[in-house]
Design a protein around this nucleic acid. Structure first.
Lengths: 239, 239
DNA sequence: TAGTGGTCTAGACCACAAA
DNA sequence: TTGTGGTCTAGACCACTAG
C-alpha cells in the first residue's frame, strides 16, 4: 500500500499538519465542523487508525474537539492561549551555561507551629525539618529557598549535602512522584530575606509557594523568593 | 478475544493505570527500565497497538521516555514538576462567579516609536492601535491592560466595544491562531498605572508581558499589571 | 437508519541499538 | 542476530447522535 516514500515524515503527521494548517490559516474557524475520519481516509489514502491517531493528537494539543456520533470541530481556542512551565532552578542555571552555588543558612529540626502543622496535616509540635538557603547564579543571589519537609516521608532529608544536591533534586529522587500546587505572587521580601539576597526591603520580589504531596501525605512546603530585578519567568506557547 | 467486560474502562486505560501506579508508588524509579510492549501484551492479553497507545499516552504525560531499539524508562521527573496555566482574565473572573467590568482609558491610533516598531517588525512611525483599560473584579481594580495591536493584521480592532468584549476575546476570534511568548515578573507600577489601579507607587505588581504572532506577523503586544496584594497566579500539577 | 467517533485486533515492515 | 520501539493496515464491534 505504501511502498514509496518511506523516509522522514509519518503519514499521521502529514494528516495532522494538513489539519493544523487549516486551523492556523483560518480556513476553519473555531466551532467549524471538520472532515470526518472516513473523508480523511479517502483523501489521504491511509487507514482509519492512522487518521484517528492524527485527530487524537490534535485533541491532546487542544486544537480540536470531538463528539461521538456527531463529528470533529475546531476548538474554541481561549483555553490554550497560555501555558507556561516553571523549571527547576538548578537545571535552568546549568542550561544557561552558568555557575550554580548554594549558600546554606539553616539546616535544622524544629517543632511545628500550629500553622505549619496544619499544612502538613500533623499535630502541633510534631517534628519538621527546616532548611534555608540562598541560590547564586554566577555569584549573584537569585533565589532564597525556605523549606519545610515532613520527616515521616523523607527521614534522611537532613543528611543531604545541600551544597552538592539541591533539595528539589534530592526530594525528587527520594519520593516517588508527587502532586503539587503553587501560587506565584509579587510581594516584598521579609527583612531576613532582603538581607540574605542582598537587596532593599522595598524591592518587589517574585514569590513562588509550592506544596508537594505524595500518596496523600504532604512532603514539603517551600517558599522561593526571587528579586524582581534579577529573575523573570519566561514561557512560550505554540500550536 | 475480549467478549467479556465491555462496559466502562478501555483496555489501554487499564494498562496505563497499571504503569502509572507503578511509577507513582515508587515500584519503578526514575531511570528504571519498564516492561517492554511484548511483555505487556502477554501480561494483559491485549494487542500491541493497545499497549502502544497506553505507552504513548504516558510519554505525552511526561511519565516515561522511550528509546527505539532500547526500551521504555521512567522519566526523570524534574521537568514536569511544575506546569501551570495562565487563564484569560475574563473567564477567570466569571468562573469565580464574580462581576467583570472594564474601564476604558484610551482607544487610539498612534505612530510607532522606534522601539515599538521593532517589536512589530514595522517601520518607525508606522500606524499602531493602542488601548489602555483597567479590569475590575466586583468593582476592585485587578489588572491594567496596556495593549498595542498591528492594524495590518486586525484592521477593525478599534471598532470593538471593549466594555462588552475584552481585547483578548476579540483578537482570538479575529485572528486564526497564534503563537505567544511571555514573561512574568515582579516590578513597581508606573505612576500612571498606580493611579489607574488606585494603589501606591511602591506596591509590588505582578507584570505579565505577552507578544502574540500569527503567520509570521506580530499581532499584539500587551503589558498586564496586577497589584501584588490583589492577584495571585495559582496552579496545580498532578500525574 | 445512517453516519459519526471510540476502541481493538493480529498481523506487518521498518529503524535502531546492543550483544 | 535479537529485541526494542515507530508506524501502518484492513478489517471489526461498539456507543452515540441525528434525521
Amino acid at each position: 500500500m505504501n511502498s514509496t516514500r518511506r523516509l522522514p515524515t509519518p503519514q499521521y503527521q502529514q494528516v495532522k499538519n494538513h489539519l493544523r494548517d487549516g486551523i492556523v490559516s483560518g480556513r476553519w474557524s473555531p466551532g467549524d465542523l471538520m472532515p470526518s475520519e472516513a473523508e480523511l481516509v479517502l483523501q489521504f489514502g491511509v487507514s482509519r487508525m492512522t487518521v484517528n491517531r492524527a485527530l487524537r493528537d490534535l485533541v491532546e494539543a487542544g486544537l480540536v474537539e470531538r463528539v461521538q456520533g456527531v463529528g470533529t470541530f475546531v476548538a474554541q481556542l481561549h483555553r490554550i492561549a497560555s501555558t507556561l512551565t516553571v523549571r527547576d532552578l538548578h537545571e535552568e542555571i546549568l542550561e544557561r551555561g552558568h555557575q550554580h552555588e548554594a549558600r546554606i543558612e539553616l539546616v535544622q529540626r524544629i517543632k511545628a507551629t500550629p500553622e505549619q502543622a496544619q499544612q502538613f496535616g500533623l499535630a502541633s509540635g510534631a517534628p519538621l525539618f527546616h532548611t534555608l538557603m540562598v541560590h547564586l547564579e554566577n555569584g549573584v543571589a537569585i533565589q532564597c529557598e525556605d523549606r519545610l519537609v515532613n520527616p515521616a516521608v523523607v527521614p534522611d532529608y537532613l543528611k543531604t549535602d545541600f551544597t552538592q544536591i539541591t533539595p528539589t533534586h534530592y526530594l525528587l529522587s527520594a519520593v516517588p512522584l508527587s502532586m503539587a500546587s503553587y501560587t506565584i505572587e509579587s510581594t516584598l521580601p521579609t527583612g531576613q530575606e532582603a538581607q540574605l539576597l542582598g537587596i532593599s526591603k522595598r524591592e518587589p520580589c517574585l514569590v513562588v509557594r509550592r506544596r508537594t504531596s505524595s500518596r496523600g501525605q504532604t512532603v514539603t512546603v517551600v517558599r522561593l523568593v526571587h528579586p524582581g530585578s534579577r529573575y523573570v519567568i519566561e514561557g512560550t506557547f505554540q500550536p
